[in-house]
Design a protein around this nucleic acid. Sequence first.
DNA 1: TTGAAAGCGCTAACAA
DNA 2: TTGTTAGCGCTTTCAA
Lengths: 327, 327
Amino acid sequence: MSRALSAPEKVSGDTRAKVSEAVEATGYTINQAARSLRMREARTILVAIPNMGNPFYSTIMDAVVGEAAERGYGVLVANRLGNDPTQWLRDYFSSNRADGLLLFDASLELGHLPEPPRQRGALPLVLSCDEIIDGGFNLVTTDNRAAAERATRHLIELGHTRIGQIGGRQVHQFPNERTLGFQDAMRKAGLTTRPDWYFPGDHTMACGIRAADSYLALEDRPTALFCANDESMIGFLSRSRAHGIECPRDISLIGFDDISIAENYWPPLTTMRQPRHELGRVATATLLDILDGTTRPNQGLHVILPSQLIIRGSTAACSSHRKAVGQ
Amino acid sequence: MSRALSAPEKVSGDTRAKVSEAVEATGYTINQAARSLRMREARTILVAIPNMGNPFYSTIMDAVVGEAAERGYGVLVANRLGNDPTQWLRDYFSSNRADGLLLFDASLELGHLPEPPRQRGALPLVLSCDEIIDGGFNLVTTDNRAAAERATRHLIELGHTRIGQIGGRQVHQFPNERTLGFQDAMRKAGLTTRPDWYFPGDHTMACGIRAADSYLALEDRPTALFCANDESMIGFLSRSRAHGIECPRDISLIGFDDISIAENYWPPLTTMRQPRHELGRVATATLLDILDGTTRPNQGLHVILPSQLIIRGSTAACSSHRKAVGQ
DNA sequence: TTGAAAGCGCTAACAA
DNA sequence: TTGTTAGCGCTTTCAA
């Protein structure tokens, strides 16, 4: 019976017919619990996402579920309960509920992972996030650093020289990839980054609002801002507009992600589009390849997906530059 | 051993100590597959969501996962593959991968459900959506109809009499709850709804854009619009502004949901806030109560959560009314 | 090509 | 209070 279902070619047409007839008649469906027990695999992956309320991650999630379903895997969702990942990860993982782990949250202390996933490289764990991770893990990310440099260059090409930044989350005190890319571009252009033009952030609209308040209090203001993501940019836009600042007349802003409202905001957001769907799909495919034995990496493999500059209405030529060029 | 873990009170302190010592020493964790097989329950629920990319649903999802985890349940995510729900529902459900189903998508043909969930009422199925469902199913929804009436009344109280509508998805050709509420308010105020002021929609920004195009082509325009949700409202706002329409000077707009950008859009959105987190939490709790046997409904139970009117900047007194009142 | 049987790790029932 | 055992539904091995 099992044979007829899983390896039909090893069974006579006669028996096969009889089996499928019986399946029809009784409405048989396989019992996954029994199968998992016997096969020692759950055909399920666990996805840990920092903040599912964030539309950025929900799109990724959509792709993850789609790709997994296509390959016969279920998707379990975990959100963080408490601060000790060991607790809930163990709860799913070492209890045979999931075969692999898809981690979209670099802020997890990876050192704290329970035994199985801790052994790096050859392990059913794929990380997908914006941060630098010390080697050995399988990584699927976008080209954050290069993309941030490209974004900043866009501002520079527009004639801006007084450029500030709304920062993103920093893990372990290191500047993140996007900040690094920003600094690359500034350095290459011979521009200086000013500490009073750096507004710390955490990818929320709230931090954009705080950034706007700091900006408004400045004597000497930048003419452009590189924002860690679209939401912090929207927070900034919203608060600064309420105080009479008009974008892009008074300040040029570039964001990151290209979230769905980006093109219907006012002004429409100039931003670096992140291939979110692709990110989720590829991360899942990578994990599943490892589980299926297709890929057996002996060290961490790193897939990098390209971002794309989307120019809309929130950036414009710097007014002093405009004058200089005679516009 | 099993006893010491699941019913510690029925075991002597001595044995209990020995067992927990052994657990420590060997790093034992329970095998869920074996447990599921034996207990005939997966301690997992399946969540079907129409569009996870939509921030409205991702917040709900967050609440679902939190509540389920708290009660020791895992959450499997399904997205729709193809149009036959039987196929993938069966795949999870009757195969013992999930004990119950949380459905956030009324557009599923419920008649097509596989056997177990089809028997209504006493079944491990909880529906949570905006639509009217013919009785018998367990339902957790917001007070859509009353909320839509309240929203429309807000417009009317502002002096608007020429009110149009951007519609939402309609299932089975029936007007949905929000449309019904809108009509209630109009009727009670003795106002007429005009077919050329009804713009069909599907809760996307794209449909808001189409609505704006239709609106712009109108000879005789409404002074206010009741929008099925915030995203369609944002689409309308974006397109109409590009054509010189200013909100709320030229038109008042009220939305539905209070998505996170709502207060940082320009103008800030007046909207009916939906208790999304609560919706997810209560729907999950209801399903889990059924699974645990706490609730054993013999017919469908219906939990209704209240919405809340959030007045911001997208609605204003009707200009003709303003004149009349001498403002 | 097919049938029979062992055993995955757990819980519950029964004996001791 | 504790030890023993059957059996959940599946896959796989071994025999026929």
